[in-house]
Design a protein around this nucleic acid. Structure first.
Ligand code: MN
Ligand code: MN
Ligand code: MN
Ligand code: MN
Lengths: 219, 219
DNA sequence: TTTTATTTTTAGGCTAATCTAAAAATTTAT
DNA sequence: ATAAATTTTTAGATTAGCCTAAAAATAAAA
């Protein structure tokens, strides 16, 4: 039984919703992420259920079966490895690779992706700091804290971004802020959650609360 | 106006038929290569014509417009560059890469393919000896002769294969015969077009007329 | 606890890409 | 030149994936 590209994209979206701790993914949440109507989602969710990739209880959202979760995980593996390839080997910037990886992830060949993995030196994280599952589906873990939870005086290194939309990444580029940047909290402004930070021991900048929320650091 | 993967595959097939000198591609020839019914071909050919990618005269076959030909050429460029990547970087064998390239060729990004090209060192030929069009669509040319046209005593180097089906390529692997192999014709047997050759100045083998027809050599 | 708002599902339709069977056109053979 | 064979097109259906509008179910508010 083969899985279409569309079905794969749905599996990934459902997986990403469940990953955030939700007990099940709602029709509306899926339709928002997939940019399709709620009716189309109901349609597709039924098809995924029929293929034993998802479990659907009417009006109660959808979960993934073990197999559905495995497929989603392998899609993330492929997506992230291709992103590493595009950045490390073809010199793309981290904000340019998402769309291409969105297509490349659907190429079917376990052997190819395992070889790509070793060609790239078995990276554990993608260009946005997201963990790359290994061939068995195990994610690397790492202790990381969103910048907004840091206190004044604390220091850390940027290791990931919560959101990797092009505008956000380009804004970070503008600030000269990326994975590996050293950050020290100089001041925190409670009334709007913005903060003044010392970047790479050299530049003082002010960043908004939204940016603080979207940056993951290692202490 | 965007072109579907299916439309792209049809364009490639039509291009490959026209490339062999035919003035137009017949419905049957296309249906054979596409593994679809003749009725489906008629359908698709009309759609390609409506999109100005092909010219269709009822019962008289189909040709490609300039734009149709350009798209087919870029597909060959992508297909062949990915094949080089798979063989040179991921260490696949020449008989293992076709199916993967068949999918990879549909990834849309001019920038990506141009960068891949330079990452690979701007190769002029793919792992089967087929020429790789450059970014402007120009094919490298090379004087090459099918082995069956060689006379006894003549020598040459294998530079390409007419057909790159897995069984044929694996058979060549078995014979220790690949791109770069040195060949000298020792005897030709007219009655079945087979020949005895000296391979790499060391091994005498007999090959059938079919094999002779499918090997291209440079004198 | 009704009423109202929101979410989800159903009903009915559309397009791309495919199929089989039958009709029409063209080519080949007699 | 007519008949037979082959090729191509048309007709009519099917499936995946999508849509809008309406109905049904659930959640929130009064
Ligand atoms: Mn995708
Ligand atoms: Mn990523
Ligand atoms: Mn293809
Ligand atoms: Mn090739």
């Amino acid at each position: 039984m083969k899985i279409s590209k569309t079905e794969e994209n749905y599996l990934k979206v459902i997986f990403s919703i469940l990953e955030k701790g939700k007990p099940s993914a709602s029709t509306n949440a899926i339709s928002k992420k997939m940019q399709t109507s709620a009716a189309s989602v109901t349609d597709m969710v039924k098809r995924l259920a029929k293929k034993k990739l998802a479990i659907h209880e009417s009006h109660k959202g959808v979960k993934l079966t073990k197999r559905g979760g495995q497929i989603a995980t392998m899609l993330l593996r492929k997506h992230r490895l291709w992103e590493v390839f595009l950045v490390d080997k073809l010199d793309f910037l981290w904000d340019e690779v998402h769309e291409m990886a969105e297509e490349l992830e659907h190429i079917q060949s376990k052997e190819m992706i395992d070889r790509l993995d070793s060609f790239l030196g078995n990276p554990k994280f993608d260009p946005h700091g997201d963990p790359i599952p290994d061939a068995e589906g195990n994610f690397a873990t790492r202790q990381q804290t969103p910048l907004n939870e840091f206190k004044v005086g604390e220091k850390g290194t940027v290791v990931g971004v919560r959101e990797s939309s092009t505008p956000f990444l380009q804004y970070l580029d503008q600030l000269d802020l990326g994975l590996g940047s050293k950050v020290e909290i100089l001041e925190k402004f409670e009334y709007d959650n913005s903060a003044k930070i010392l970047l790479n021991k050299s530049k003082e900048i002010v960043i908004t609360g939204k940016v603080c929320l979207n940056l993951f650091l290692q202490k």
